[in-house]
Amino acid sequence: MAIEVFKSTAQLTDGMRVECVARDHTIILDEPKELGGTDTGMNPVEAVLCALGACKCIVARCFAKAHRIDLQDFRVEVEGDLDPDGFMGKNKDAKIGLSEIRSKIYIKSSSPKEDIEKFVEFIDRTCPVADTLTNSPKMVTELKIER
């Protein structure tokens, strides 16, 4: 199967507010007021956590029947630890990004516990966002100066 390219654009608007577009969909990212934003949207770190939880939900929905899981309800709560001193340059030893991400999966199902546990392991192995966070992709930045 050929590689599929996903694209997005992030445009800084006012203050810390960023308009993010992918295909025909737009979301607004911002920072809380105490971090200099206007709190009109979640911040980028929260968006990453949401993307991880959403991806796990989608994987669960896509593969539940194939794994013979009676998926009645499925929710993922995700939290991560970030030391702002790393990003702000106040502590050179602090990690700039998240140091740990934790997921709590809530599933309503009549399937056996052992099958659900194996299914959750499958979800964690198969989730593209989890894989991206666990096995960092090659990062390439190209600069275009507009005058």
Rank of each mutant, 00 (worst) to 15 (best):
E4L: 06
A10F: 06
Q11M: 09
V18E: 02
E19T: 12
C20Y: 00
C20I: 15
V21K: 11
H25I: 11
H25F: 12
L29A: 10
D30L: 06
L49E: 08
L49T: 05
G53D: 10
C55S: 04
K56R: 05
C57G: 09
C57A: 14
V59A: 00
C62G: 04
C62W: 12
A64W: 08
K65E: 14
R68W: 03
R68T: 01
R68G: 00
D70R: 07
L71Y: 05
Q72Y: 10
D73G: 14
D73R: 14
F74K: 12
R75Q: 12
E77Y: 13
G80C: 12
L82N: 12
D83K: 15
P84L: 11
D85F: 10
G89V: 10
K90S: 11
N91W: 05
K92F: 03
A94D: 14
K95C: 07
I96R: 15
S99D: 15
S99M: 13
I101V: 15
I105W: 00
I105K: 02
K108G: 08
S109T: 12
S111P: 04
S111N: 04
S111Q: 08
D115H: 08
D115R: 14
F122S: 03
T126M: 04
V129Y: 03
N135V: 03
E142N: 09
E142R: 11
L143C: 06
L143K: 07
I145K: 06
E146Y: 07
